[in-house]
Design a protein around this nucleic acid. Structure first.
Lengths: 215, 215
DNA sequence: TAGATTGTTAATCGATTAACAATC
DNA sequence: TAGATTGTTAATCGATTAACAATC
């Protein structure tokens, strides 16, 4: 399969966001150095990344901005529509159902599931809320492969089991709890606290640099 | 400063979650192999990671489960309280204000900010919503260094500027847009779509393996 | 031509994986 | 003693950084 460097995949959308701005301002080309400066990254790294996605630039000029956008989109797979189901329609789950970014990138939550009977049958952000018992049937019928877990920690494993049984092949886990699934099921742990810790540590590192006079 | 390997920081909470389960079941020790099997990771990697955080185990037995938990917590910095402000109190922002995981790890959102006058002065999940004009004063007074951006893409840069001016030194950016800040300010981009793409690609990789008969 | 910027090739660095002796 | 499992040391792999000639 194509390259799967996680750091690369995390940087590309940042390039996209910046280059998109430039395109809106009718700029036609962009230099690696400009991207790097905006995002606080090394120009060489930007160049290497762009090489990875198969865009060639013009020495002395830079890269074609529009082509760069298209190639990033292609590499990220944003043209392909992806349907998902969601378990746990509390505040986090509801926010995800209303997340505008999904539509923009061709992702769609087709149904929400929750144990609370009072919200079953209702809609949140236009998405139907169903009892968990219906997950298997719906997922199989619609050939859904992606599932989101947004339930409390204590119920994460139980929901993961139901998803596996429903034929889900990729689980996006927002609960703090690790889940145990068969090897053929991919799990992406979205640990918000860890992101915060990383931010915190970077902040501390900056402070140290500042004390040493590096900034 | 202490080690700052992002992959390591992302794995440790998973170990924590699993070991916590064991401790609840009154298990006293854990082997690297058991952790690895549960999380689909290599036992050697688990062992290396544990070495990094300064826990020594007993050959033939494993690691002391409780000590492991404590050392992970210490390494992640979960004992230190951290106060944050949040800009953008829409559905995502509201969900973050209600996110139970923060309290558990000593993080706290002390105030929410929003441009919409109708919600200024109200409370969401017990947190006061204020106009953006009050950010600087409040942040400086309370010595807040962490800020969360949960506003629409179009306003992300503007809010980032206000945060920088307010003395914020670390920004957790949930908007899809890249932001441009001075070098001494750390940014953690929480790009949900990228996580999804990573999951999607892992899923595809698994499928390929499956076709080849590796799983 | 001079300046800017890419693409290529090599060097460095850090993270992961492997091998195996030491210890419980 | 035998089996399990760690800790140590070395090997591999991949990502980042550096150097510089080629091109616009």
């Amino acid at each position: 399969m194509k390259n799967l460097s996680v750091p690369l995949l995390r940087r590309l959308p940042l390039y996209h966001s910046y280059v998109e701005q430039l395109v809106r301002e009718d700029k036609e080309s962009v230099a690696s150095r400009a991207i790097g400066e905006y995002l606080n990254l090394d120009a060489i790294q930007v160049r290497k990344d762009i090489e990875q996605i198969g865009v060639v630039g013009r020495p002395g000029i830079g890269y074609d901005a529009r082509q760069l956008l298209l190639k990033i989109e292609e590499f990220m797979g944003w043209e392909n529509p992806n349907q998902m189901i969601l378990a746990g329609c509390g505040s986090l789950g509801s926010a995800l159902m209303g997340y505008a970014g999904f539509e923009l990138r061709n992702f769609e939550i087709v149904a929400g599931f929750d144990v609370r009977e009072d919200i079953q049958g209702t809609r949140i952000h236009g998405i139907n809320i169903l009892p968990l018992e219906k997950m298997k049937d719906l997922s199989k019928r619609m050939h859904i492969e992606l599932g989101i877990i947004a339930v409390p920690e204590a119920n994460a494993q139980e929901v993961a089991d139901i998803m596996v049984e429903s034929g889900i092949k990729g689980i996006w886990n927002f609960s703090t709890s690790a889940i145990n699934v068969p090897k053929e099921v991919a799990v992406q742990q979205e640990d918000l606290i860890t992101s915060l810790v990383i931010l915190q540590k970077n902040l501390m590192k900056n402070k140290e640099k500042f004390l040493k006079g590096d900034i």
